[in-house]
């Protein structure tokens, strides 16, 4: 059921934070919410070179999402391809989804007062394109992975 994943090749990632901004600009988000983040661990010497581990985090698009049943207006929807998204028309901004999510992924958009979260840029996927963060990754470190059943 889950069809897509975004994978970070951390060897190529230079933590330029481009993905965070590409995402925000594509979703037209104001100051405040971020739908994906880059995190660097504190520098630690490995073989004489201070190194950092870089991780990319965004909505995990759970197989069995807790946010979907928590939504009182059925605004949180899971598509057949596993993408979990907010139907802004139905969302009333109660943020029950955020409380239900173990990682508090959905955030409130201060411009609309509605919940907003990563939807894998499903409009772009449906148009045959890749998510904004993947398309514009400065070093091509982010990849869209399509999962297949064995």
């Amino acid at each position: 059921m889950k069809k897509y994943m975004i994978h970070l090749n951390s060897r190529r990632c230079i933590a330029c934070h481009g993905c965070e901004v590409h995402c925000k600009a594509n979703k037209n988000l104001p100051v405040g919410p971020f739908l994906c983040t880059i995190h660097c661990t504190p520098l630690q010497k490995v073989g004489g070179v201070p190194k950092t581990e870089i991780t990319f985090s965004h909505c995990r698009h759970c197989e069995d999402p807790l946010c979907v049943p928590a939504c009182p207006t059925n605004a949180m929807i899971q598509r057949d391809d596993g993408i979990v998204y907010v139907d802004a028309e139905k969302c009333i901004g109660c943020m029950a989804c955020q409380k239900a999510c173990p990682w508090e992924i959905p955030v409130q958009n201060p411009d609309t007062d509605k919940a907003v979260k990563c939807d894998m840029c499903m409009d772009r996927l449906d148009a045959g394109l890749k998510p904004a963060c993947v398309t514009k990754c400065t070093t091509h470190a982010l990849k869209l992975v399509t999962l297949e059943c064995a």
């Binding site: 481009g18 901004v21 590409h22 600009a25 398309t135 514009k136 990754c137 091509h140």
Partner: peptide
């Protein structure tokens, strides 16, 4: 509505500053 690195030269790649041109 959208800025990306020239696909013929950068395969779409752009940094945070590049996208912040909209701002």
């Amino acid at each position: 509505t959208w800025i990306e690195g020239n696909p013929h030269l950068l395969a779409g790649a752009l940094c945070a500053k590049g996208t912040a041109g909209i701002a």
